[in-house]
């Protein structure tokens, strides 16, 4: 049986290094299979998050040969095995141990976004009517499995570390899903502009490229939100309008 070498990051918040593990590989294997095999046979305490192993839960995010990936959906036949395969944790979040990072910041961010607030029901039985074509675009956003690979690759978070000023692509998608939900009545534009930092995004589309659910994050979520923000706060006619007739 063929073997391959996996160069896996081992360590915690204080120190760490790459360690090479050689293991057998077989047809159809994904990176997560190899990591599990190494964990079971050579390194019982190798920390890795995973759940569904079918690309549906978004737990096993890591960087494989430098590319942000779900380990469960990365086939070994897609990567060269004649050189060691590097597997390391996401860089945009603090390391807990080995391949596991502290993603709790994301959960805190989500809590701060105004929740869904529907209009009164359309029918007497308390239900609503919505056309499929009106929800198609929101359903695209709701495919998100919260793997945070888009957060990992976004330079505003990854290089500039602006976690306190910028909510990242995942939460622009989340906000867009709420803003474009046909039943929702909240307005989140002021927060998007002032505290969520949508202006920091310079639409390089790195997030869209790595999304395992193929959500067109930049074009369908972020740009329309930017347009709405511009429309509400920077439209010169509306600005005049606001000066002369301030909000009640």
């Amino acid at each position: 049986m063929a073997t391959a070498t996996f160069r896996i990051w081992r360590g915690d918040a204080n120190e760490g290094k790459f360690v090479d593990y050689e293991t057998e590989v077989s047809e159809g294997m994904v990176v997560l299979d190899a990591v599990h095999k190494i964990q079971a046979e050579q390194a019982n305490d190798l920390a890795v998050r995973w759940n569904c192993k079918a690309g549906k839960c978004g737990s096993c995010s890591a960087e494989v040969n430098g590319n942000p990936k779900l380990m469960c959906m990365t086939r070994l036949n897609e990567i060269p095995l004649d050189a060691p395969v590097t597997v390391e944790p996401m860089h945009a979040f603090p390391l807990i141990k080995d391949l596991v990072t502290d993603v709790s910041w994301n959960f805190e961010v989500k809590k701060k976004i105004k929740p869904f607030n529907p209009r009164p029901a359309d029918a007497d039985d308390g239900t609503w009517r919505m056309a499929q074509e009106d929800i198609d675009r929101v359903q695209e956003f709701r495919k998100c499995i919260e793997c945070y690979l888009c957060q990992d690759v976004c330079h505003v978070l990854r290089e500039h570390d602006l976690h306190d000023k910028f909510i990242g692509p995942r939460f622009f998608v989340y906000a867009a899903a709420l803003e474009m939900h046909p039943l929702d009545t909240e307005n989140r534009l002021e927060e998007l502009k002032n505290t969520d930092g949508i202006g920091y995004c310079n639409i390089t589309k790195c997030c869209t490229k790595v999304c395992p659910e193929h959500i067109t994050i930049t074009d369908n979520a972020i740009i329309p939100l930017k347009e709405r923000v511009v429309d509400q706060f920077y439209d010169p006619i509306k600005k005049l309008f606001r000066i002369f007739r301030p909000k009640q």
Binding site: D12, Q39, N44, D45, L46, A47, V48, I96, K97, V100
Partner: peptide
């Protein structure tokens, strides 16, 4: 199990 108590899948298993 080897290692320590921090995020240790061997211990968990």
């Amino acid at each position: 199990v080897g290692g320590n108590r921090e995020y240790n899948p061997g211990w968990h298993t």
